[in-house]
């Protein structure tokens, strides 16, 4: 059998026995404790011992969604960061990039996810959707068309939806709390 041990002795960094903490777990600890969020974003852990499931509340201080308070759920699985966190909007909101089921169209949550990205990048990406809703990647087609056709009307729909009005037969949730 090959003598690997002798090669090891030559290594300057002689590793000591490492802890049982899983790589995903350490990575989540690192991501969370190094979060650098503006005042407009807050995390909440229903069970503070469970780091893998939490919510993020975004309260934009600028743009068309100013004044609203938008809540997203985050679910991280043990294959993180090979797989991205699963993120959903927990409210029914009027937004071109969020559908009525809470699915979010944000490239880094799916096709452009890479393990070098972290929770901070996802959160900043989500906030950006409220500052710059993007009609090119629609999930709520009506909202996207309105944004392209008539920005003023779109804005008024946004304001009404945020107060819990019904738009085109869809009951939106009041997010002004």
């Amino acid at each position: 059998m090959l003598k690997i041990w002798s090669m090891k002795k030559n290594e300057d960094a002689v590793a000591k026995k490492k802890p049982k903490t899983s790589a995903a777990q350490i990575r989540v600890q690192k991501d969370l404790t190094e979060l650098d969020l503006p005042d407009t974003m807050k995390t909440h852990f229903p069970d503070p011992n469970d780091l893998l499931n939490f919510t993020l509340t975004i309260t934009p201080d600028d743009g068309m969604y100013k004044g609203g308070s938008f809540v997203f759920s985050f679910a991280i699985n043990t294959n993180y960061p090979h797989e991205p966190p699963k993120v959903k909007c927990t409210q029914t909101i009027y937004h071109p990039n969020v559908d009525l089921e809470g699915n979010v169209c944000l490239n880094i949550l799916r096709e452009d996810w890479k393990p070098v990205l972290n929770l901070n990048s996802v959160m900043v990406g989500l906030q950006y959707l409220f500052l710059e809703p993007n009609a090119d990647d629609p999930l709520n087609k009506d909202a996207a068309q309105e944004l392209i056709k008539n920005r003023e009307h779109f804005l008024s729909n946004v304001k009404q939806s945020m107060r819990g009005y019904n738009i085109k037969g869809v009951q939106y949730q009041n997010v002004m709390g």
Binding site: D99, V104, L109, R110, E111, K114, P115, V116, L139
Partner: peptide
């Protein structure tokens, strides 16, 4: 080498939706 892996093909969610 985890970041060298081919990631599973994922299509943009808006393409799937619309």
């Amino acid at each position: 080498s985890l970041d060298m892996l081919n990631k599973p093909t994922a299509f943009p969610i808006c393409t799937i939706a619309n």
